[in-house]
Amino acid sequence: METNDENTFSEMEIDTLQEIMNIAFGQASADLAEVINVFIVLSIPSLKLKKAVSLKEFINNEIGNLDNFKIVEQGYWGKSRGVALLAFPHEAELELIAMFREDTGMGFEAESSDELDNEMLIEIGNILIGACVSKMAELLKDMVTFVPPRVISPEQLSEAFVENRFESESRVILLKTIFQIEGRELSGHLFLVNSLDSIHTLKDALREFWKQYE
């Protein structure tokens, strides 16, 4: 595969990444159906390179009224560092929680229901994010480790949030897909934000992937 500039991606590399994402998310949905008894439809993923500092603006543009959303955030690292953001609109959140409760039949000793709802969202987020990120890593022969996820509000997606994770002027790879629960009016957005610190390792992984077909 031709790669000239070592600090950015060629069109072909982006196309390959997109295809790998496509495959990863396809496998993730099929496997998720087996793990959680729910059919999850993942839309064709899109990929963009953006400045880290414009993350919030980007997400806001993608999903519209961000304030109406709740976000599950989970950090992960393999050859590169990244953070997954799973955004549900408030109505979807409640339905999703109800659905998972039915499925698990878990008992609760509620002090504040809001807090438990958050914990529930965290578990759901952990499964969805884990499936998508792990499949992607598997195809790129990477191994990822996850940090416990947490719920954040849209306000927390501030500059400080970005600065704590990425160099704000640096660029990040933004992967995005919309997931939908089949048979229900229920959808959310999944963003994977990867640092480009290790662009070389990613390029190497892509080359490796290509080699299988050369």
Binding site: D31, V35, E119, N126, I127, S134, K135, T145, P149
Partner: peptide, 9 residues
């Protein structure tokens, strides 16, 4: 299946 981590709070 995924090699995921599960966190039980």
């Amino acid at each position: 299946k995924f090699g995921s981590f599960v966190f039980m709070s």
